[in-house]
Design a protein around this nucleic acid. Structure first.
Length: 351
DNA sequence: AAGATACACAACCGCCAAATT
DNA sequence: TAATTTGGCGGTTGTGTATCT
């Protein structure tokens, strides 16, 4: 039997920690470090098993832990990453600075899972429930699944690299980009801070259309409609809307529930539609942004759809809180989109 | 007011892989 | 190389608190 003795076998204390115990553990670790967890309790004067001490430290006492309410952005990040990674809480936790995997897991189980269920979304698949999918939707699902595997592998690789670098990297993009930070940005941010310790970067693959778009926009010259001084990383997490020319109404006022679904999913993507089309289903946004009409926007720029950025609670672009743009007036904008299509890795599914 | 129920979250358990002997 | 130990992970339970009946 290679199994180590368990707490109960030696009559050690279990259950909630008292403030005195916390103090002993904290004082010991601050002075000596934790060293061998197994040996710690005796040295620190605690009648606990080492495992209990480790858990108490990593999930509660560690100084670099943020406690309390999860922000909307944190929730978006969790949902988005969960869609990609499933219940790999430790990997997800590497993308939420100062949050523990246990806390994230608890928050998912007690809040987010229920919320998605309530909205008719299967919390495991992140797809709408009880809707027969059309063939094209099935194709999208298959593509997304492929993307999820790919991106998930990237995230894992990145988490591993961070671990191996033995550095706690606080990722500047994480806080600024919030939920929209995906593998590419996080990876780049990591590279800039730990470059000497990491192997050459994997060629980043933009598997998230929105992120890729944001990335290309970041590197592109700013167009007049977005005064450079007001364009911040934060503003890039704004809601992306597509509206018909001359119709700049906010989708959220027409479809608050759907809007919330998208925002919770961290997709922050919507498509404004004409009032007259509101009852027609084909244009109503779907939780899956790949299904939300991006294809025809990307591939058919003669369509009557125009991109705009609105602020709302997701940050704002000063001076253009609800600007619609003519295609020809926004060459940069469209070029970014077209670049995305052109740069898409051959053989990778796009739509 | 009191018991029942629901909820939130800390803590535990068993398993596994990596590290150590 | 095999055996053992250690630390980490995800699922689950236990406990305290809030809300309901």
């Amino acid at each position: 039997m290679g199994r180590s003795p368990r707490c109960e076998k030696v009559g050690l204390k279990k259950g909630p920690w008292t403030p005195e115990e916390d103090h002993k553990l904290l004082a010991y670790i601050e002075q000596y470090g934790h060293g061998s967890w197994r040996a710690l309790p005796a040295k620190a004067g605690l009648e606990r098993c080492g495992k209990s001490c480790r858990l108490r430290w990593t999930n509660y006492l560690r100084p670099d832990i943020k406690r309390g309410k999860f922000s909307l952005q944190e929730e978006q990040t969790i949902i988005q990453l969960h869609a990609l990674l499933g219940n790999r809480w430790s990997v997800i936790a590497t993308h939420l600075p100062k949050r523990t995997d246990n806390e994230i897991k608890n928050h998912w189980n007690t809040h987010l899972k229920k919320r998605l269920t309530k909205m008719g979304i299967d919390p495991m698949t992140h797809k709408p429930k009880s809707h027969a999918l059309s063939p094209s939707q099935l194709k999208d699902v298959a593509n997304l699944s492929h993307m999820a595997q790919w991106e998930g592998a990237q995230l894992e690789a990145e988490a591993r690299l961070v671990r191996e670098s033995k550095l706690q990297v606080s990722n500047p993009f994480q806080t600024q980009l919030g939920s929209s930070a995906s593998a590419q940005f996080v990876y780049e941010a990591t590279m800039t801070t730990t470059a000497p310790l990491l192997p050459p970067p994997i060629q980043p693959l933009c598997l998230d259309v929105l992120t890729a778009w944001q990335g290309s926009w970041l590197n592109a010259p700013k167009c007049n409609e977005f005064p450079a001084t007001s364009v911040t990383l934060d503003s890039l997490t704004s809601t992306f809307n597509f509206s018909r020319k001359g119709e700049a109404m906010g989708l959220s006022s027409h479809f608050p529930d759907e809007m919330e679904v998208l925002q919770l999913q961290g997709l922050a993507y919507s498509r404004d539609i004409d009032d007259s089309l509101a009852t027609g289903n084909e244009n109503i946004l779907l939780p899956n942004f790949m299904e939300a009409g991006l294809a025809d926007i990307l591939l058919d720029n003669s369509s009557q759809l125009y991109p705009s950025i609105t602020g709302g609670s997701y940050g704002n672009v000063a001076g253009s809180s609800n600007g619609d743009f003519e295609v020809e007036e926004n060459k940069n904008y469209w070029n970014n989109i077209l670049n995305l299509v052109n740069c898409w890795p051959s053989g990778s599914p796009l739509f």
